[in-house]
């Protein structure tokens, strides 16, 4: 059998159930929408509306801001963990790796629920803050909670990206730098850090893109007061039934994600995917 025929079932499947629906969504996003009814047409009003209406624009900007912050923080706190997992010689390495991979085993919903337990007004975190005299602080139904939850949810992606990058840097390079007189900090800063920049950028870009379409965490920890692009897509789809607008937001999210991932891929000369 010709190899190409083996690919056909999967390809047909994806065309019918993924690519055609995407095209339909794209088409719907330029249809007209009046009083809950969709009319065929060609208009950019939903895009223009979303990008000019201060309510929606605010949601977009806040989501981008959130995505940026989460991306940066996951890389910053993911780095020491990745370093430990690649370079460490501890016997706890296996355990830590399991801990890091845990998110791949537990649903986002489950982990975010854990944060709800921790962050609620009288939860453990507030109890702790109270002890040191800093509490109580409102940590749920606002951006703070969403931010913490998202960092936790997407941290593994950054860790794994950095690990991938770090494992291509031979440990002898850092030793060579020390051997030539560089202190541990200098050796890291001059050699390891620049060489793992690609992994950090990948981790950031992945996280950034994923936050734009993250639904469960903002919903659970943000309640109905925090809106992100993803919750907007959902609300427009299922509550307001404004499918053209939902489609327009989805396309905008899609485009931003693709641009971020595409730029990253171009910079690094390889494909970046979740």
């Amino acid at each position: 059998m010709r190899p190409v025929f083996l690919v056909t079932p999967a390809l047909v499947y994806l065309v019918v159930l993924c690519f055609i629906p995407d095209v339909i969504m794209l088409a719907l996003s330029v249809f007209e929408y009046r009083d809950g009814v969709i009319y065929p047409g060609f208009t950019f009003e939903h895009y223009v509306g979303f990008l000019t209406d201060s309510f929606y624009l605010n949601i977009l900007l806040r989501t981008l801001y959130l995505a940026f912050g989460v991306g940066v923080l996951t890389v910053l706190i993911g780095y020491p963990v990745a370093y430990f997992l690649v370079r460490g010689r501890s016997r706890f390495k296996g355990l830590v790796l399991m801990l890091v991979l845990m998110p791949l085993l537990a649903s986002v919903v489950v982990r975010t629920f854990g944060w709800l337990v921790l962050l609620e007004p009288q939860g453990l975190v507030n109890q702790l803050l109270d002890v040191v005299g800093l509490g109580p602080v409102t940590l749920i139904r606002n951006y703070t909670g969403v931010f913490i939850g998202l960092v936790h949810v997407y941290l593994p992606y950054s860790i794994l990206s950095i690990m991938a990058s770090l494992s291509t840097v031979h440990p002898s390079l850092e030793l060579a730098a020390q051997n030539l007189g560089a202190g541990r900090v200098a050796a890291f800063r001059r050699v390891t850090l620049p060489l793992t920049l690609p992994g950090m950028v990948t981790g950031f870009a992945l996280t950034f893109a994923l936050v734009l379409s993250a639904y469960a965490t903002p919903r659970i920890l943000g309640g109905r007061t925090v809106h992100t692009t993803a919750t907007q897509i959902y609300d427009q789809m299922l509550f307001l039934l404004n499918w053209p607008l939902a489609g327009a937001i989805a396309v905008i999210v899609l485009v931003i994600s693709l641009v971020v991932l595409w730029v990253t891929s171009r910079v690094q000369g390889k494909l970046v995917i979740a």
Partner: peptide, 10 residues
């Protein structure tokens, strides 16, 4: 690469 929420909505 496609955001999953977009795929779901579509």
């Amino acid at each position: 690469i496609l955001p999953q929420i977009v795929t779901g909505a579509a």
